[in-house]
């Protein structure tokens, strides 16, 4: 039996699904045809390797790592810290993934100094500093709010 994320039985497929399948499959087919026939297209094996590496990198490396970190944090963190650290880690992970290739600077070239002109590692670090300062403030607020609640009780 097919189930949804929350464990219930999945609803019956929509009768309109073929109105999506046909153009969708046509687009996938067109893309595949283009990849195989484009004059300057990729060598299929290299494209396939890159393609599979993306899936493997996410499903077998990144996602288990994130789940593991989440599991660890909810076991060791006090309640007041959980949400701020969750948000902080979401932002940190995204910033590192989006900024990594810029920060290592492999794309810079001496003859085009206007390309990649910033200290990207420094800017990512600055962004993360702002993020964690905000999260620290949020944590302090939650701790204070929790103390007030306790005092009232």
């Amino acid at each position: 039996m097919s189930t949804t994320l929350s464990g219930a039985s999945a609803p019956a497929p929509s009768p309109y699904r073929w109105a999506w399948y046909l153009p969708g499959l046509a687009a996938v087919g067109w893309g595949g045809y283009g990849l195989l026939t484009a004059a300057m297209g990729p060598e299929p094996l290299k494209w396939g390797l890159f393609f599979v590496l993306g899936i493997v990198g996410h499903d077998l490396v990144l996602a288990p790592f994130v789940v593991g970190v989440g599991l660890l944090l909810t076991r060791v963190l006090p309640a007041a810290l959980r949400a701020p650290i969750q948000v902080g880690l979401i932002g940190t992970g995204v910033a590192l993934l989006a900024g990594f290739s810029l920060a290592i600077g492999r794309g810079t070239s001496d003859d085009v100094p206007s390309a990649l002109p910033y200290n990207y590692a420094g800017r990512v670090a600055m962004l993360l500093a702002v993020l964690w300062v905000v999260m620290a403030g949020w944590t302090a607020f939650r701790l204070a709010a929790g103390a007030n609640v306790n005092q009232r009780e």
Binding site: R17, G24, V28
Partner: peptide
């Protein structure tokens, strides 16, 4: 490569939406 793979990505998204409409 980015251009042709875009067709695959958008087509796969459309198929997925169709399969998950309900």
């Amino acid at each position: 490569t980015h251009y042709w793979t875009a067709w695959i990505a958008i087509g796969a998204i459309v198929v997925h939406v169709g399969s998950k409409l309900a």
